[in-house]
Write a protein that binds this DNA or RNA. Structure first.
Lengths: 229, 229
DNA sequence: CGGCATCCGGGAAGATACTG
DNA sequence: CAGTATCTTCCCGGATGCCG
């Protein structure tokens, strides 16, 4: 009925951007809308389906997710792809440039972790958990160590590789891991950053550990939250 | 008529935050609101007055600036301070932790500069310009060089110091500088990134150079925008 | 003029329901 | 499961006006 399409188009054209040559300002033009950066976060470990994204981004409604994916695709950060048969399922994945946003999460996360208000006991997704390990890894504490460490969160698994005084991680099947942790993402967070005794968390049934127990016990010493500002 | 003040209060209490333990998500809780990060950017080189902030953040209205400053102050990022007499003027400045947000700008800026849509010809503030030099400095290109380089933008001046294969910069009076550039921030951007001949920009009256001319000519080789994704 | 409160219009975000 | 349609709420941005 109402032919307001013109105003909609013009609004999209001008699109509430910062008219600013500053790189950071343009970054906000790209990923500054609400939820946009967290959508990217959830894609940082590989392609995901619409429903998976929605499930892990608690509070994000379907229509907004649709808008963000459209916007990010238009910006060249996200790509829509159809998995080959027999899966034949639609997934969203980051472009190469999209994956290069990784340092943004590390730097922003490290800075924000010093916030007096930061509450590590809030819910956390599997991806965030793995990303947090990347961010907070203390090379000094694990100096010289080489090991693959597995994480099983329900039906998804990840492998962190410590080598050359560095930690890398990826979505992967558990294989050749010295230790495997299984449980909720929040349990790993609680163990690693809350410095809870491993036996205690196992007794509560929140975490299951298989493999090199000594390494599992040592694992939590490789990470530390920065002190509050 | 409608006494909806209660809902307003509760809205401020819950305040559209991501309920997420992820550091990056908390970062967005802190500085994810529109303009917040750019307000911080304008404070990265030292205290500023309300009107100065408003002037350099084109498109930001006074009421929103007030809201952002309040929010950032409450979050412990910004501090309100009264300059001692005879100035007796109110300024806003970053807390120590606020200044630690510097890497966020560098990383976000470096990433966003690769955006196909990034347009370096848009208007740019003095602070953004100096921050951009910090971000895009190529240590290899200036290897071994030691020099102080001055910038005069109207009534504000900055000094960049190149030493130990690193570039630092600060708001400061021009002193002991090998070269001084004077003009609009956009002129410096155009010279440095647009790789325009210095003589050409001087002829147009957009840039004035005093001091070591050879160094001034070489200066633009110390910086480069990354290639587009 | 600097700083802040208030009112208003438009548009983005959020919740829910609905469709293929 | 993967979105779309609709409605409401609230934030953003602009204008105005008050006060020191």
């Amino acid at each position: 009925m109402k032919l307001d399409k013109i105003t909609i188009e013009s609004a999209k054209a001008t699109g509430r951007r910062y008219h600013d040559a500053c790189g950071a300002a343009h970054g906000l033009d790209l990923v500054g809308e609400r939820w946009a950066l967290l959508v990217i976060r959830e894609l940082m470990f590989g392609p995901r389906r619409f429903g998976d994204l929605k499930a892990d981004l608690c509070g994000l409604s379907a229509n907004v997710l649709t808008q963000r994916l459209e916007g990010l695709e238009e910006a060249g950060i996200v790509r829509k792809r159809k998995l080959p048969p027999p899966a034949s399922v639609q997934v969203y994945e980051l472009t190469d440039w999209g994956y290069e946003a990784q340092p943004v999460f590390e730097v922003l996360g490290r800075w924000a972790a010093r916030s007096p208000r930061h509450d590590p006991t809030l819910p956390i997704s599997a991806v965030s958990t793995m990303m947090s390990l990347r961010t907070m890894f203390d090379a000094e504490a694990a100096k010289g160590l080489t090991a693959r460490i597995g994480f099983v969160f329900g039906d998804r698994s990840f492998v962190a590789t410590i080598a050359n005084d560095d930690l890398t991680s990826e979505r992967a099947e558990i294989a050749d891991c010295a230790v495997v942790f299984e449980g909720e993402p929040s349990a790993v967070i609680e163990y690693v950053y809350g410095k809870r005794p491993l036996a205690e968390m196992e007794a509560e049934g929140r975490l299951t550990v298989t493999g090199d127990r000594a390494l599992a016990e040592r694992f939590q010493t490789f990470f530390g939250l920065p002190e509050k500002a």
